[in-house]
Design a binder for these strands. Structure first.
Lengths: 412, 412
DNA sequence: GCCGCCTACTGTATCGGTACAGAATTCTTG
DNA sequence: CAAGAATTCTGTACCGATACAGTAGGCGGC
């Protein structure tokens, strides 16, 4: 039998608090290393004597490497008992537990190592959040940020952490594949994302948000379609008979869209457009695809709609930001809002409230969405662990039309 | 010897993709067993012939439980070789590697299990970010959000994930103690946070941000003091001889502060105040502590400063938001900005640029801060792993005074 | 033809814990 | 007072991987 030196010396930081115990790394065929001697409790199968002594698990060969075994040896109990002292207090007398905890503290044992525990328990205590757009987007975009804030907040009491998984650029390390997590939230990612497919392969509990789920996963969706429909009906009720649509992620190049019923790849965009069309019924429609969800692009798109012989009397926009761009374009064309042109936004962001005229828009409860998504995932993870059958749940959150000052009766 | 039933049945989702291979992994001289023997829970129809058979490591007992060993057995190579195929391609012929990868794919083996790998390698690939204020704050506050965005962005190419560690409310699970991470960023946390002390006990590489480091940890700080000093000098140069200060986290209750030199607990607030005082030299100072960093609270604080016999001719504010509140208060008191009152903000947020008058403020490069913090931590982690000595580094990022329209010469 | 050096794999010993069945005692209880 | 039930702790067998030493051929050099 060959004996190997202990690997991974674990380059230590400052030595454990004032603890200058033996050190002597005594590798290989070592005569005893400080802690456990041949007389350690229950050393039964070990003749203890001399040669060929492999440093056994708990032996504190490298200074500072304190594990359950270290503590166990120190107190004179089994490793299992120490584990119980930390993780299942009801399994031992509180007296012994105190003693163990004290010894642990003295030795500088922090508590069960998360990595070891994760392996043994099969759970890590973290859930992933998959982000396809730039990670930064999650923080920068107010809509996304609000959602994530709610998720994190709702997770905090459960003691779970949120791991942001960038859909890596590096080939070497792919967070979605390599980070230990118990489940994940898929947030508005293109379905073909490679990272997503890793998560699916891992067979982790997944909850899709703002995106149609694949496979048997659960989902939390906002009723974008219903909200859009309500917005459209609102215009119809106001008497508008020709309505413009301005959105993103349709198909083809940006500019005027021949057939607005053709669907693109963006789930949310598709739903909103579909809802608009449903709500508008037979009303005449002109549609424009903007280059991006930005005020400037919406401004340009609006020009295509409004700077014509027979412009629409109202415009439905993909976002408040875009609506704001449309309002600007209208003003610059000499149109008053809402007297000459009604404009409807989407999202009910802070902007919608603060600008003049305040925007009629569709409000979404991002906090509820975040809470719901988090809860769904957590309960699903719990269910899987308990061995209970999981069934995918699909939640649809209602949106609300908020009528403010940017819409009015169709001009005569 | 007793036989234990396999624990943790790993409640399976849908069975592995159509693969119903007979399992017979025939490990060392054992007859094969497809399940375990009669002591398993919910045992029933187990034709298990022979005697006591302990399911050995690689045996594919539970359908869907595919590990390195499963693949190894399937291909007929050692487990180690499979591991190398995934993690160290240079260790085997590319021919064999292809074969292994194909088999793995067929068996539905996703790749090395992150938890197992984390334990064996001693690294998880995630870094933590400690948040003391509400987790939500990280997303809601634009300053924090911008910083985190930069951190995440800068980490993405390295393939590391960011784990948000709420400073838990639950006693049971404490993320800072229980989540597997390789290092952490401490972002503007009160020093007494319990979560922080766990991180320190774990002896993880830490980088403090916007907070004086404890122990031997590195830090990234903005030169708040220098920035504040520049802002104060600017006022002095404009001839102001009595200046108001409005900030938060001083000491005692909010309202007028008798001695502005007394320091509070908020590192950033302390530095800014100190910088102001340095820059103001002997100029007369009146100080107010606002209840929070909000426009409304600043508004009320400003009234205390301005609605007096002999008001200051300029006010230095802890943030742009507060400056905006001060501007409002001034207007409502009939004071013009900057003719009658100069106002200086801090942060150079979007607000400072968009309001009228545009605010003179102190610009900070949050993106640089994020990148730097991330890089510092990553390199420190790499150094520790490589066994190289780590030395704490302390970076101080300069701030820049941006003079806009809210400041002017002191009124005669 | 013997030796040393590569290359490609394999064996063994961990990494640091947890689950579960036992075993040793003590406490009930009929 | 003995059998049964609690209460405490211990032993064994993993969780799923990686590090490192070691070994078996193949091959060029002298």
């Amino acid at each position: 039998m060959t004996v190997h030196a202990p690997r991974r010396p674990r380059p230590e930081g400052p030595p454990a608090g004032g603890d200058t115990r033996g050190a002597l790394p005594t590798v290989d065929g070592a005569r005893e290393a400080m802690g456990t001697r041949g007389d350690a409790p229950a050393e039964g199968p070990y003749p203890g004597s001399g040669e060929d002594r492999v440093p056994r698990h708990g032996e504190d060969v490298a200074v500072g490497r304190v594990t359950l075994q270290t503590v166990a040896d120190h107190v004179g109990v089994s490793r299992m008992t120490v584990s119980n002292a930390f993780s299942r207090p009801d399994q031992l007398s509180s007296e012994l537990r105190e003693k163990i905890l004290a010894a642990a503290d003295e030795l500088g044992y922090v508590g069960p190592d998360p990595a070891g525990r994760a392996l043994a328990r099969g759970a890590t205590g973290a859930i992933g959040v998959l982000l396809t757009k730039s990670v930064r987007h999650a923080f920068t975009d107010p809509i996304a940020a609000e959602f994530f804030g709610a998720v994190a907040e709702s997770l905090a009491p459960t003691g779970m952490a949120v791991a942001l998984l960038p859909s890596g650029l590096s080939t070497e390390r792919i967070p979605a594949r390599d980070i230990p997590i118990d489940g994940a939230l898929i947030y508005a990612c293109a379905g073909d994302s490679e990272a997503l497919s890793w998560l699916r392969k891992r067979r982790l509990p997944l909850v899709y948000v703002d995106q149609a789920p694949e496979g048997e996963a659960s989902s939390v969706l906002l009723d974008d379609r219903g909200g859009a429909r309500a917005a459209a009906r609102h215009l119809v009720e106001l008497g508008h008979r020709k309505v413009g649509l301005i959105a993103i992620d349709w198909y083809g190049p940006h500019g005027l869209i021949a057939d607005p019923t053709v669907r693109g790849t963006n789930y949310v965009a598709n739903e909103r457009v579909a809802g608009w069309l449903e709500g508008l019924g037979g009303v005449e429609v002109v549609a424009v695809q903007a280059q991006s969800n930005a005020e400037r692009d919406a401004y340009e798109g609006a020009q295509l709609l409004l700077d014509t012989e027979d412009p629409p009397t109202a415009v439905l926009c993909f976002s408040d930001l875009m609506a704001w761009g449309v309002v600007h374009a209208a003003h610059d064309l000499g149109l008053r809002v809402p007297e000459d042109l009604s404009v409807v936004g989407f999202d009910d962001s802070a902007l919608a409230r603060s600008v003049r005229p305040a925007l009629t828009t569709v409000h979404q409860d991002l906090v509820a969405k975040g809470h719901l998504a988090a809860q769904l995932l957590v309960s699903e993870i719990a269910r899987v662990r308990a061995g209970e059958p999981v069934e995918a749940r699909h939640e649809l959150l209602p949106l609300q039309l908020v009528v403010r000052r940017s819409t009015g009766p169709a001009p005569a």
